[in-house]
Computed example of a mutant assay.
Amino acid sequence: MHRLAPEVKILATLLFTVVVVATPREELWAFGGYAVLLAAVAGAAGVPMKWLARRASIELPFVLLAVALPFAGHGERVGWLGMSLSVDGLYGAWNIVAKGTLGVVASLLLAASTTMRDLIVGLDRLRCPAVFTQIATFMLRYLDILADDARRMRIARLSRGYDPRFLWQVKAFAVSVGSLFLRAYERGERVYLAMVSRGYDGRLPRPEAGGATAAQWAQSAVLPAAAAAIAMTAVLR
Rank of each mutant, 00 (worst) to 15 (best):
F62L: 12
V63L: 07
L64R: 04
L65H: 12
V67L: 11
A68W: 06
P70W: 07
P70V: 14
P70T: 10
F71W: 05
G75Q: 06
G75M: 08
G75T: 06
W80S: 12
W80D: 10
L81C: 15
L81K: 14
L81N: 15
S84K: 08
L85T: 13
L85Y: 11
S86Y: 06
D88N: 14
L90Y: 07
A93E: 04
N95R: 09
I96R: 06
G100W: 08
G100M: 12
T101E: 14
L102V: 14
V104W: 13
V105R: 12
S107D: 11
L108H: 15
S113L: 13
S113T: 07
T115M: 05
M116H: 11
G122I: 10
G122R: 01
L123Y: 10
R125Q: 13
P129Q: 08
V131Q: 13
V131M: 15
V131H: 13
V131E: 12
V131W: 13
F132G: 03
F132W: 13
T133V: 12
A136V: 12
F138D: 02
F138I: 09
F138G: 07
L140E: 06
L146H: 04
L146M: 04
A147W: 11
D148Q: 14
D149S: 15
D149L: 12
R151K: 07
A156Q: 02
R160L: 02
Y162S: 01
D163F: 00
P164F: 00
K171A: 01
A174D: 01
S179P: 04
S179F: 03
F181D: 01
L182G: 05
A184N: 04
R190V: 11
V191G: 03
Y192F: 14
